[in-house]
Design a protein around this nucleic acid. Sequence first.
DNA 1: AGAGGTACCTGGCAGC
DNA 2: TGCTGCCAGGTACCTC
Length: 272
Amino acid sequence: MPELPEVQTVVDGIKSYLEGRVIQKVVVRQHQLRWPIDVNLAHELVGLHIDKVWRRAKYLIFCLGEGTLLIHLGMSGRLQIVSDNAPLKKHDHVDLHFSSDKILRYTDPRRFGAMLWTKAPLHQHPLLKMLGPEPLGPEFTPNYLYHRLQGRAAAIKCLLMNAQIVVGVGNIYAAEALFQARIHPAKPANLVTKEQCSHLVLAVQKVLMAAIAKGGTTLKDFINGEGNPGYFTQQLQVYGRAGMPCFQCKYTLSNMKLGQRSTVFCPHCQPA
DNA sequence: AGAGGTACCTGGCAGC
DNA sequence: TGCTGCCAGGTACCTC
């Protein structure tokens, strides 16, 4: 499942190939993603030059001169550079062709992803303008987090996953960061202390950077088109380990639902 | 405005 | 074996 580290890995992997190329042809086999792909997408994109490929939150952003292609991988999306005669699989929804024998292929079994074309300035785009700071950027500081949590009674984990507070922290990394910071996931956000905010900011950055470092491994699979979903799993301390002993204290890890999401934590290391 | 719930979708798995 | 039902996940949108 693509979280921020994997999206970053995808960007790092494809940008050097894509930047400077001109889109020659677009094939859309499945329009029904999270939002339907514009029926004119192919018509709009053909002939455009890819100036820049970058990431904001979990969105991949292709700057194409007169407009922008926004791609979200949702839960199960993949972007691969493959040979133009690579065999077509069931959920290969979109291909971008260039003046070479390689294509960019978008695959997404669960179709929670999105591919949107916009000519509006990016800072005004409704999907981007409400986003909080990047977790690895200079704005995400203990002070910032502490102030954003004031007056909020919701569980800290829910706010950590709220993209208006900070982007890119999904269910896995929220659980891992709270464990590292030794904060109970259900703790009301306004009761999290300044000191805990310091630990939490560091923990979020640490788990994300560790995963990005591991993403290098994923990158190979990604380029080879083999796909290995097991990345980073060896390093997970709590996620997916409910009922198993805590690596730190051997206490049995608990599971609870917060915001409809399963949340694993250690009742001993993360006291209420 | 904030909090909680729902919808979208499919593969994988448990239980019958 | 085959069916049913639940779960996982990100995020916009709806309701209270």
